[in-house]
Design a protein around this nucleic acid. Structure first.
Lengths: 196, 196
DNA sequence: GTCTATAAATGGATAGAC
DNA sequence: GTCTATCCATTTATAGAC
């Protein structure tokens, strides 16, 4: 036959360890965000990445270590706060109202955090990640007394809004218009961002 | 023998359907609060109640229906907010700081909510319970524009503090002295309780 | 570098005895 | 009214073939 000597190109992807590892990691971030640590199995993640479950242990050692790397990826970008200086409170409130809107099925570190918090091992991994990433980001913006406490209260308020509005979809927050909700949240953030 | 006619008193408990049902329900509230819906099995709950797993399905139909009743029990008492009128913000802030302290390993509806939020069925059950209980309690206290949104923002802030301070134990919130933390949270609650 | 096959444990739910 | 025993699905992790 004519194609006897043509180099075969597998349907999915070349055999490339780095690319496979990255595909698994991307799938893991999405899956853990949508279903939480306990809510998703390694088979499901592997299938999304187009590989078999075995490769997860091959490249990451265990489900828990894969989760640790996924958390690091999800928490690294500075998505938790928006804007700087005087605009910090307003921008954060508006971004939060937009991203937790019922029609915006967005991902993001808060959903990963909320949906994995029940597992003690996952909680410990996330606590360390917060100290390394989010805490550091907010520490750059906030100054004055008790900057650490005020920064974590900002995170707490955001996490709570994500929980009630996005995860549980309680009626008042779900139905609130974006601008109105942002207007209610901005003074809360401002009380925390302004130096005291 | 002398004891042939003496009524036998079983070691644990009489055969009493109502008492057994209540024992299962109490054990379920504690277990779901500590480990979340997905983090605990019916065998474990049954063992805490001193019965076998089978009786859970006998009396409640399924794990999910047992969870629904446990949520209703946990959310019914008015523990989410403290005080009334002018004292509402301050009392809520102080109670929250006290109950989320590292040394106080307390239970309560917020821990149940946070640790079960990852499961979609559990989330729906909790959304309905919030509408029936917590929303109604806060609705009695709050008045003015957008009372519903402000009430749910109060719940969100409390849930977020429970998450970071109690579940994740992030450093700044964990190490903050109770009075200082309450002082930082009170103006946030006041901004939400005061009629607008 | 990736697969199939399977081990070993655990989940919720059910049948039938007493 | 409560038990033992079991079914069946699903989980993480591993062994060994190609």
């Amino acid at each position: 036959m004519m194609d006897a000597d043509v180099p075969r190109t597998p349907a999915r992807r070349r055999r490339d360890a780095a690319a496979t590892r990255q595909a698994i990691l991307d799938a893991a971030v999405a899956a853990f965000t949508r279903h939480g640590y306990d809510g998703v199995g390694v088979r499901e993640i592997a299938q999304s990445a187009g590989v078999t479950a075995m490769l997860i242990n091959r490249y990451f050692g265990s489900k828990e270590q894969l989760f640790a790397e996924a958390v690091d990826v999800a928490f690294a970008p500075r998505t938790v706060i928006a804007g700087t200086g005087d605009a910090l409170a307003g921008e954060t409130a508006r971004a939060l109202a937009a991203r937790t809107a019922p029609e915006a099925d967005e991902l993001g570190p808060f959903l990963l955090m909320l949906r994995s918090a029940a597992n003690p091992s996952a909680a410990e991994i996330m606590r360390d990640a917060i100290a390394r990433h989010a805490g550091r980001h907010l520490g750059e913006e906030l100054s004055g007394d008790a900057a650490g406490v005020r920064a974590e209260l900002m995170l707490a308020l955001q996490a709570g809004v994500w929980l009630l509005r996005s995860v549980l979809a309680t009626t008042a927050l779900r139905d609130a218009p974006q601008e109105e909700l942002a207007a209610h949240m901005e003074p809360l953030f401002r009380r925390l961002t302004d130096p005291q």
